[in-house]
Design a protein around this nucleic acid. Structure first.
Length: 364
DNA sequence: TATGCGTGGAC
DNA sequence: TGTCCAAGCAT
């Protein structure tokens, strides 16, 4: 017998569905992506919500949908504008993958988001969770949508002690959900689980006394709700020292560089910078030579006017920021541009470089 | 399978 | 202040 079948023995799935869905009908938050079930809007919201809080997403969702109201609008948009709309939201490959996938839907599926797990999960950026979320919410298909909430809620409900940080564990929860999901209302079932995880069955100090499915919960019964789920820690991040320079010419245009199309902050724009060891951080002469080599620009480096720390999830940047002047001419191309500070507002910058810009403005 | 990939909020 | 995240996916 499969582990999932073993786990749900004695679990009253029908009653649970009813209790969960009734609670969701009463208590669900009013959210912009819940106003209709437009598959495109459901899709956009699900991508934005990956590893990102609801409160953070709301303004981005409004702005994004107003700029790109339909599949066609997004498919035909400039990537630069899409990234600008994503600026500050993080995990920028989500934006580029979304546009790639939307183009695919526009061209291959006539602008209709596919409604089978096979087709939809082939789309760039659409993994197992998003597949289930779109299918259940937009199309009413009873497919599991297992995210962190669902694993937390069900690890407590069924007292499951598998490590939810392990990729393999997600499959166990998918098996479980397939056995207990509501076929009548998979949309509210899946959304109800996530809403419950967000509002009641929280990572720390869950509100068990307010929980609509407390009677189904083995962890509450056993008093171990604070010990579940089991989740191993990630390893600590590393520190990288950078020197960055805000380089201006005699017309007060500033030099910006487009980052590589893969990896960290892919395709976003930045001020010229280099990794340094802590010692070299004060060496203006070497920074000047580096800029000449890497960007082909003849410059003089002035004073360091700020140090900026930026903490990523897996990395910390400590950036020493200099001002500098461009002496000769610069060969511009699609990855290197001289722009006015007004034009700069059209380009998507990572938050770290937005902070460099702020520091420069207050220094000037 | 483990790691890289952002950001801002909660405690 | 440091730690842990929050509706994951690609490689």
């Amino acid at each position: 017998m499969k582990q999932s079948e073993q786990l749900i023995k004695g679990f009253d799935a029908k009653q649970f569905q009813h209790d969960l869905i009734s609670w969701f009908e009463q208590e669900q938050r009013i959210l912009p992506w819940r106003e209709d079930q437009d598959p495109y809007k459901v899709w956009v919201s699900e991508i934005m919500l990956q590893q990102t809080r609801v409160d953070t997403v709301i303004p981005y969702f409004h702005n994004f949908i107003s700029k790109f109201p339909t599949i066609k609008h997004l498919a035909e948009a400039d990537e630069e504008d899409v990234l600008k709309a994503w600026e500050g939201l993080g995990y920028y490959s989500r934006a580029r993958n979304l546009q790639t996938a939307v183009k695919e839907v526009h061209e291959t599926y006539g602008g209709i988001v596919p409604n089978t797990p096979q087709d939809i999960s082939k789309l760039k950026g659409v993994g197992p969770y998003t597949t289930g979320a779109i299918l259940s919410i937009a199309y009413g298909v009873p497919e599991p949508a297992v995210d962190g909430n669902v694993m937390r809620v069900f690890s407590r409900l069924l007292s499951i002690w598998d490590d939810i940080a392990k990729p393999k564990t997600r499959k166990l929860f998918e098996d479980v959900i397939r056995l207990v999901i509501s076929n009548e209302n998979p949309s509210f079932f899946n959304q109800g689980l996530m809403e419950l995880g967000a509002l009641i069955c929280t990572p720390t100090s869950p509100s068990c006394l307010l929980c609509p499915v407390r009677e189904h919960c083995r962890a509450f019964d056993e008093g171990v709700q604070d010990e579940l789920p089991v989740k191993t820690k990630k390893k600590a991040n590393r520190i990288l020292h950078l020197a960055a320079v805000v380089l201006t010419d005699e017309q007060n245009r500033v030099l910006i560089h487009k980052r590589p199309e893969k990896g960290l902050l892919a395709n976003l724009w930045e001020f010229p910078n280099a990794e340094v060891d802590t010692e070299m951080n004060l060496d203006q002469e070497r920074l000047q030579m580096y800029v000449k080599e890497a960007y082909g620009a003849e410059v003089t480096i002035g004073d360091s006017f700020a140090t900026i720390q930026h903490i990523f999830s897996h990395l910390t940047w400590k950036i020493n920021v200099y001002e500098g002047k461009i002496m000769g001419s610069v060969q511009e191309d699609d990855k290197l541009k001289l722009v006015t500070f007004e034009e700069l507002e059209k380009y998507a910058l990572p938050v770290s470089h937005q902070n460099i810009l702020k520091a420069y403005r207050s220094y000037e």
